[in-house]
Design a binder for these strands. Sequence first.
DNA 1: CCAGAATGCGAGCGGTCGCTCGTGTTTGTC
DNA 2: GACAAACACGAGCGACCGCTCGCATTCTGG
Lengths: 231, 231
Amino acid sequence: MPDKPDQSQKPGAGTTAPDATGKEQPRRRQARGERRIQQLLEAAASVFCATGYSAASTNAIAREAGVSPGTLYQFFPNKEAIAIELGDRLVHELRDTYGEALAPVAPGTPLAEAVGAAVDRFVAFNTERPVFFTLMHGPDMPGGIAEAHDALHATLVGRVADLLVSLLPSDTDQARVTRTAHVCLSIYKAGLELVLGHQGAERQAYVQEIKDVLTRYLEPLVGDRLGDPAP
Amino acid sequence: MPDKPDQSQKPGAGTTAPDATGKEQPRRRQARGERRIQQLLEAAASVFCATGYSAASTNAIAREAGVSPGTLYQFFPNKEAIAIELGDRLVHELRDTYGEALAPVAPGTPLAEAVGAAVDRFVAFNTERPVFFTLMHGPDMPGGIAEAHDALHATLVGRVADLLVSLLPSDTDQARVTRTAHVCLSIYKAGLELVLGHQGAERQAYVQEIKDVLTRYLEPLVGDRLGDPAP
DNA sequence: CCAGAATGCGAGCGGTCGCTCGTGTTTGTC
DNA sequence: GACAAACACGAGCGACCGCTCGCATTCTGG
């Protein structure tokens, strides 16, 4: 490894002047710069998808964006920052698109329907943005990314857990809830891999399988209608 | 990349004499050599586990084995061959340990029991040999390994599918069976990740979760006792 | 016992990769 | 139009990595 400046700052790669406050306000950007950043992130997404994070070279990303390596480093302090920024934007898209995803379901909804809706949204998001899966799934990430990783994962587990506490019998203990949430998420992720590996009708069939697996897993725990926990 | 000699031969790295038949019989090994190979494979397992395949350096493997880089290349033609040989040995151990794993189950066995036994064996094998999971799961493998990968995966899917045809109603179509087998295997793998990420009682709890997920997934398809397909 | 094969060593070759730097071009501001 | 800041370039630096090569040492068969 050449150098580890471990400066994980926002895109503002070069700073105008080392501010006396110690905090460096983000460098002034022109519209052209913002466009370049977008270009570079899209190129990065494409390259990451094709080869994975660690095998992706910054030169390849620059080339894909039709830009010189030097230009890339005008906007990102290092390779890791590219992945982090890309991840951040994806997470925001996730939130924006689905708001409080896995959102509150009306009591009385059939379990299968609630699960189906959640799976469909999750699958749609991922098929439209294959990078998301690559970044979430790749075990070849340096420290900084793994953190963001785990943070997102923890958030999702928390969200699922919140949903579950309102469904499971009230005497269910905390650890049990967390465990169930982890299992649901793992099934989600494993199923997603299967789904992304197929096309057309076959893909749809696998989506249905995920729904079945989750529904049957949860049914004995929550009853077949929400708000109506099994005895 | 320096060179791609793409010679994926068995450990015999250097060959005695280019045999006129075109086939090169494996180089004569002394006991010392066999011991070194074992040492190197164990070192490789440890390094792969710690850092993943692509991040593992051959020099690090040699160092871990207490040996010079040159010595390593006396026994393996390249880095890929190390992983392949390691994988081969693991697969053989898998076969030897569990014979015709996921073996025929006596008709009348409760589904939960059959699933439980299979999961327990699979989990035991993997907890004793964490490299196996690393090699199977890592998406950062060069071509040659990915092939072996897929071959093993296909074998396992085939095995599970064979088991399923004897359980599912006889009018179930082929694609349905394969799909179900893929889903079972994915659940297995996803669950394994969860299991390996925890210790002690928590780990046991996750093992139970995998069993529950699989049992509940399969129950509606095969009935709650084997040899007694649901209508 | 001795020739030759097998084993062992480690500096270093050729290559890639992340990233820098000196320099030139475009853009916004007064 | 002038001036500074932002943007763009691309050769190339330093670090590392997979792998080689020449040479020393140990084993083994005859």
